[in-house]
Design a binder for these strands. Structure first.
Length: 557
DNA sequence: CCATCCCGCCAGAGG
DNA sequence: CCTCTGGCGGGATGG
């Protein structure tokens, strides 16, 4: 009577399942990993590891990254203990950068040595002294967290160093690091670490909590490439290996050149759609405040809005359930009427610009810039030629877009292959659906690019420079397209790619100083390789053929 | 089933 | 009192 069930998600998402029993699907359409502290930290780093960053406001960070403030505290605390950040004032941190890491580590090391010494003295609780490794452990940890806060536990003598509040995370992080750098151990499992860091841990619940924290820390640390997850040599247990400071991780900012294949899981612009599974406590009073509102237009609750728009566009198709994020609204139906409507659909693009860590907040400024810019382009495309800066922006904008599809596609394919091999027909079909969806998104994006360039940008391009730019861009997107196609369509795309590159280079050779820009792209085409189908041979031949032909021709002119 | 670890309640610390 | 911090552990998630 008194306890009414806490309201679930307000959406009428729940399908009409008559039976209450039978475990019916949770519909968590997002993966837990997409919200991990590690990822968040990576994004945080990518966001602030830039020139010109001096201070960091927590509000700013949390709204840009789209997380609750609580999470920011976690990250900031561990970052601070490594020297990357320093607290300046309430709500304000100073960015020190990765460069500060070595110094911080050194300090920790010295401190660690001292602690060990100290610890030895204080610590004497033993029953059998059966610790196999005599690593050192740092203490200064007030053992025993009394659950009954009787306040003033009195404690022994020394306890000034014993901070009052500095109970965990920050300190824990440092101690955790000390474990590595002050001992020979290179690999430590979290259980071990917890045991060591806790003076003595028989109390399971304490241990448990400690380990939880350790996980958090480990995630952050590994997102900075300071440590890495491996296995203990002997057993099978997962553990962490110290890597030390080797230079900072690369961010995934769209660089003009190629992208460094994804090495792990640090993708920035992947798709993801978390359909309001959030339940902020105090409705919006909190949110309201954090929204800076400095952006115009689209802000608001654009995500949902756009979603709705898309959904209603083609019937009220329900959401896709499945192991993967539902991806952004797609148009399964052929875009036949696109060209007649608008050069391209800005809203559509905007919706694709969600950064990976979106919850309720707005996006990072760069996305706003992009969106704003695209908006502008859409309106002026007929009247004015783009400036070089604008061209670049456009290119970057689309690059991000497409990159956010290509990486997932790659991953999906590899999963699909694996599952196929295992014979999980069920999974395969789900995965295949997903793959097809991504592929169609790629097609859609490419079509937009082609359309935009062919019907507007190229015709109005007045300099050789810009012509080459657009042609090369066209070629690039045909290449991306070819990646997502198979069979005849692939061949066609490959052909197109080469043709366009060719004409681009022709102009370039003629009117521009020098250009080797295409060499890389062309070489890459050699690498077009896929399944062990005969298709491969065919394509490869085609390409080689094309290239020889083409290079010959170039020689003459 | 068990290893991970996200979420957010709520108690202190400031102001 | 209000806001900023951040300990802490429930319980969901993924393997």
């Amino acid at each position: 009577m008194s306890d009414l069930p806490p309201e679930k998600t307000n959406m009428e998402l729940s399908s009409s399942s008559s039976m209450p029993g039978s475990s019916s699907s949770l519909h968590h359409s997002y993966s837990r990993k997409q919200k991990s502290l590690g990822l968040l930290c990576t994004n945080f780093l990518a966001l602030y590891n830039r020139h010109g960053i001096e201070t960091i406001g927590l509000d700013d960070a949390s709204s840009k990254l789209g997380v609750e403030r609580r999470r920011i505290y976690d990250i900031v605390n561990v970052l601070e203990s490594v020297g990357v950040l320093t607290r300046r004032a309430k709500n304000q941190y100073t960015w020190k950068g990765f460069a500060a890491i070595p110094a911080a580590l050194k300090e920790l090391q010295e401190e660690g040595a001292k602690d060990t010494f100290h610890r030895f003295y204080v610590n004497e609780n033993v029953k059998g002294s059966d610790d196999e490794d005599d690593e050192e452990e740092s203490s200064s940890q007030p053992l025993s967290t009394s659950q009954t806060d009787t306040s003033k536990p009195s404690l022994p003598d020394s306890s000034k160093i014993d901070n009052r509040r500095e109970k965990s995370l920050g300190l824990l992080t440092q101690n955790f690091i000390k474990l590595f750098i002050c001992s020979q151990a290179t690999i430590i499992s979290l259980d071990e670490a917890a045991k060591l860091l806790l003076g003595d841990a028989h109390n399971t619940s304490i241990m448990r909590t400690k380990v939880r924290r350790l996980y958090d820390i480990a995630n952050v640390l590994s997102s900075m490439n300071l440590i890495e997850k491996t296995h203990t040599l002997d057993s099978r247990k997962p553990a962490f290996k110290w890597l030390g400071y080797n230079g900072e991780p690369t961010f995934t900012l769209s660089s003009d050149l190629m992208m460094q294949a994804e090495s792990k899981k640090r993708v920035f612009g992947t798709d993801l759609s978390n359909v309001s599974v959030k339940r902020s406590k105090t409705h919006d009073s909190a949110t309201e405040r954090s929204l800076k509102m400095k952006h115009h237009a689209i802000a608001e609750s654009s995500y949902n809005r756009i979603f709705d728009a898309h959904e209603s566009r083609h019937g009220s198709r329900g959401y896709e359930f499945g192991p993967f994020a539902p991806a952004t609204g797609t148009y399964p139906t052929a875009p036949l009427e696109d060209s007649s409507k608008r050069a391209f659909d800005v809203e559509n693009l905007v919706s694709d610009y969600r950064p990976s860590y979106q919850n309720q907040a707005d996006e990072a400024e760069k996305y706003d810039d992009m969106v704003e810019f695209l908006d502008k382009v859409a309106k002026n495309v007929d009247t004015a030629e783009l400036t070089p800066e604008e061209r670049n922006l456009l290119s970057i904008a689309y690059k991000n877009l497409i990159a956010g599809r290509r990486a997932p596609l790659k991953r999906t394919r590899s999963i699909e292959k694996k599952e196929t091999k295992k014979g999980n027909t069920n999974n395969v079909s789900i995965i295949k659906d997903h793959r097809v969806k991504i592929e169609s998104e790629i097609t859609k994006i490419c079509d937009q690019v082609f359309n935009l360039i062919d019907s507007h940008l190229l015709p109005s391009a007045s300099t050789a420079d810009s012509k080459v730019f657009y042609l090369k861009m066209t070629g690039d997107y045909h290449r991306y397209l070819s990646d997502s196609k198979t069979g005849a369509e692939k061949i066609k795309a490959v052909k197109r790619t080469l043709e366009v590159y060719k004409s681009a280079q022709a102009i370039a050779l003629n009117d521009l100083p020098s250009t080797n820009a295409f060499e890389a792209a062309i070489t890459e085409m050699h690498g077009v390789r896929e399944e062990s189908y005969e298709e491969t041979a065919l394509i490869t031949n085609l390409i080689l053929d094309r290239i020889t032909l083409w290079t010959d021709e170039l020689k003459w002119s």
